[in-house]
Design a protein around this nucleic acid. Structure first.
Lengths: 341, 341
DNA sequence: CTAATTTATGAAAACATTTGCAATACTATT
DNA sequence: AATAGTATTGCAAATGTTTTCATAAATTAG
């Protein structure tokens, strides 16, 4: 028991046990070709015996990448982002990065705070959702020269690199489909659009097409609902219970559309005979629900994958400069819409 | 332009600008009460002007906590874990921790690899889902003396601290409800149970009650489905299309139950008149779907919250030793089950 | 068999902080 | 005015690694 520091397993402990210097141990990790295979084996056994695990914090101090990417989303809880998070995560994982994740609950000051925390951890890059961020946030990203990307929305003038879809177009397509089917009295169920460019653009797109198409949206048919099936169902019930109800409802996303669909069912309205419903997003289950939900498909997996790929590569140094990637969206016609008789 | 290192903003730069030593700068962050308010103000302005952000990597090297917690889940993509992840995240966030997250896709070797990576990052604690882990994983946790917790399942003999519910009981309750309603011909739709203690226990619980209650589960009614509405719907169609079909179907979780519900609807079967369906979990939307899904409620938010709280506290040092927390479950009777005539 | 290479290793500086200890400056007490 | 005590600050060592440079050993060439 001559050991003083008994159980601290650091690179010194390994070196001692393998009877080499710490330089050699370090080298055998980072440049294995520079060390004698026999020595390498000795080190390897020492590592295994001691259960040594490298300390990335110490590595990070040498300007070596931390191997982490910060991902800030409005919420993890909902179907909306689950898919894109998973795809993004898988994608950066392939390049050896680990994700730091946090949600801000649609509060942009909290988003800024989270970003700062990520920077303290010296993440190699950050990914944000959409383009509505505080000026402070944009400032911080620029001043810190951190690799950053905005997911989910595509905008040709975006301040950051972006990978996403044209949300305005999504709104237009949805509205156009209803117009094409002859609907002129249309209800809207949208999430709050403040600090949420995705929802705002969808809404603007939809509204402009509706107006152009000569449709009427009475104020009492234009309802705001949080991202929750329960809320949306309740909101829809309010629309459906007015004595004069719209012939179709256009929803800001599929979660809301689900709520509307259930609301219709609970009022004994048949979809699509008595009411047409269209969503945006094409989430899991939108295809399976009966009748299948007509919606605008946003390629969440594709967005997550491409964003992860681009960010990883730009951190590793394989690409530079801003890039804007637009992922295609399409109208998916299923069972919830039918022509106005 | 006498500056050599022009734009590196570290603690030296701040010290220089504020005309104090780096010790004082450091102190003004970590022990503000020990530094003169006037000096503190000078430092503060310097920090702001330079846009200095502390380097946690350097701090971590002093045995100071990294401020991160590793969370390993089977998948982020599904409703199953979204709620618990969000609650866990919110809960540890209150104590100043940031989450490193990764998924392993029900592959326990990948789980081990992820855990190692987390340890390289010197996370202050780790949270895993359930109790099925490789021996290597358990070993690593013990040898590294890392704070660890298992979420989701409660087991009085768990190797790790755990916060969760009794999944076997969940299976029992669901089965008992069907038995109580007089159902004796029952179909099962469960996810794969290998390396998944939660599903396995639910299934065992259900099956034991069904057997004891004298119910029959023909092999062709006992179907495996991945965690996907689409898969479950398809699986259920196989059951429902046999000439002799069960009067009730018990599902391993609500996602699967949704699939079964949609399958029934697509066969023009009325639920609950022609078929009773019960799920386990009580996810978002289970209450809103028409008819509302009868299910066993697992308190996901509560589990996430308590787990986060316990793990944070035990890292901070407010509590020690293993702890096992059982979160109550309950039968939620809604519209998808009715007595067998 | 010696000189010139090549291969393998170690010593020490560097990275960005924190902190124990010592030194200084200030305040209150006598 | 001298002393004791306290508040504030700086110096330097420590943290766990990587990497540059130098050196020693082994190999090849002549």
């Amino acid at each position: 028991m001559t050991d003083i520091k008994k159980d601290k397993v650091d690179i010194f402990a390994v070196a001692k046990r393998a009877k080499v210097s710490i330089s050699t141990v370090s080298r055998s990790f980072n440049h294995p070709d520079l060390v004698n295979p026999a020595t390498r084996k000795k080190i390897d056994t020492a590592v295994r015996k001691l259960g040594y695990i490298r300390n990335r914090a110490a590595q990070t101090m040498h300007g070596i990448r931390s191997g982490t990417i910060g991902l800030v989303v409005p919420t993890i809880d909902h179907a909306i982002f689950a898919e894109v998070i998973q795809a993004f995560s898988d994608s950066v994982d392939k390049h050896g990065f680990t994700i730091l994740i946090a949600s801000h609950g649609y509060n942009l000051e909290k988003e800024y705070a989270v970003l700062r925390k990520f920077l303290e951890h010296r993440v190699d890059g950050v990914a944000l959702i959409g383009e509505d961020h505080s000026e402070e946030t944009y400032d911080l990203i620029e001043r810190q020269y951190i690799h950053a990307i905005s997911l989910w929305n595509y905008n040709e003038d975006s301040r950051l690199s972006c990978v996403g879809s044209d949300n305005k177009l999504a709104g237009c397509l949805a509205a156009q489909h209803l117009i094409d089917l002859g609907h002129l009295e249309i209800g809207l169920v949208f999430p709050p659009t403040v600090d949420n460019d995705r929802a705002r653009e969808r809404r603007n797109g939809a509204q402009s097409v509706l107006t152009k198409g000569g449709a009427r949206v009475y104020p009492q048919w234009d309802i705001e609902s949080t991202y929750s099936i329960a809320d949306a169902k309740e909101a829809a019930l309010r629309i459906l219970k007015t004595e004069h109800r719209p012939s179709a409802i256009l929803c800001g996303n599929d979660v809301l559309a689900m709520g509307v669909l259930y609301a219709a069912r609970s009022c004994n309205l048949n979809v699509p005979e008595d009411l047409s419903i269209i969503g945006i997003g094409d989430f899991k289950g939108s295809n399976e629900v009966e009748p299948g939900l007509t919606t605008i498909r946003l390629p969440a997996r594709e967005i997550g994958r491409q964003a992860g790929e681009y960010l990883s590569r730009s951190i590793i140094g394989e690409s530079v400069g801003r890039r804007r990637v637009s992922c295609n969206i399409e109208l998916i016609v299923r069972g919830t819409c039918k022509p106005k008789p």
